[in-house]
Design a protein around this nucleic acid. Structure first.
Ligand SMILES: [Zn+2]
Ligand SMILES: [Zn+2]
Ligand SMILES: [Zn+2]
Ligand SMILES: [Zn+2]
Lengths: 162, 162
DNA sequence: TGTGAAACGTTATATTATTGCAATCAGTGC
DNA sequence: GCACTGATTGCAATAATATAACGTTTCACA
């Protein structure tokens, strides 16, 4: 099992999260012969400002802080699509929002733990869970392409307060 | 494990699906002292015309067929919200669409198998899977309130053709 | 330096969902 | 029956999210 729940829900050195995400982004772009343009990097940095999913129009509003100028919706959506395509960012469908992937390219369950108190969202990958899910799906006669698991509840930090 | 994949993906007597859904709706409304008004019933019937999720504005466009007159978006959304609240309908977040629940009130995994060829979508409930998922979530220190699992791929019927 | 594909700018529009308030309706107690 | 009350619906406007279409610029590569 792989998870970033420690970082997502507790005080930590978030600069390391950002640094790792950017390094990984550069690495994966190079590997895919794709370009991490200023706009794409600015969007990625903005998404990585927290462990909370960010909406496209929030990105649109706040991008000038990172980019020095404003852009139009298609530009933001193109950057998001690019980052999602490369596996650097996930779309959280129930929130219509986007979240940086803490471990691009590694074992994935597309499993997200969304705190509905503070909004912090962790990602978990679990091989055993994937196997159980695949088996359930297979029993239904279904050919499995992609999956997405969104859990809402209380993160450890918020649960402690209540 | 409970599933409606047989019905969802193959030829069957769909009138039975509709009849069961309506009977269940009446039953649950009575139990909750809620009213299955003509609008709500028409929306439920429309959603149950197939095993494919239906968008809110598609419902809006087609509702006159069932209701004899047209309505405005808030009316449709209110009816949908009511049906979702009662567990008679599920929202498929990745499609922004709504699907009738084949077994309201029973064991739920909120697990949907969406065929991206024909659009037919089955629902599965699996206690073992729920347990595995709950355990994974618990290990991350998260307090689990609700879940939603959306799988895309090929249904048995479409897989056979390819 | 040319050249083609990728990236971006710009305008407009599509799609999905909600707010706020007034009018109406259904049941309840008298 | 009749007033009261909360639920439901009508209606107009608007918010929030996402995409289409097309021209221009940029950039890797030859
Ligand atoms: Zn962090
Ligand atoms: Zn990820
Ligand atoms: Zn059916
Ligand atoms: Zn269901």
């Amino acid at each position: 099992m792989i998870s970033n729940s420690r970082a997502a829900y507790h005080l930590h050195d978030h600069r390391r999260c950002v640094g790792a995400a950017l390094a990984e982004a550069r690495h994966r772009c190079a590997a895919a012969r794709a370009r991490l343009t200023p706009i794409r990097e600015a969007v990625l940095r903005l998404i990585w400002e927290s462990h909370r999913p960010v909406g496209a129009y929030q990105i649109l509003r706040e991008l000038p802080r990172h980019l020095g100028r404003s852009v139009q919706p298609p530009t933001v959506y193109r950057a998001i699509d690019f980052l999602v395509e490369l596996g650097l960012v996930h779309r959280i469908a129930t929130l219509n929002a986007y979240l940086g992937c803490p471990f691009p390219g590694r074992e994935h369950s597309e499993l997200f733990l969304i705190c509905n108190q503070c909004g912090a969202t962790a990602e978990v990958g679990d091989e055993a869970l994937n196997a159980a899910l695949a088996e359930t799906v297979r029993k239904a006669g279904f050919r499995h392409h992609s999956q997405r698991i969104e859990i809402t509840g209380l993160c450890p930090a918020c649960a402690e307060q209540s």
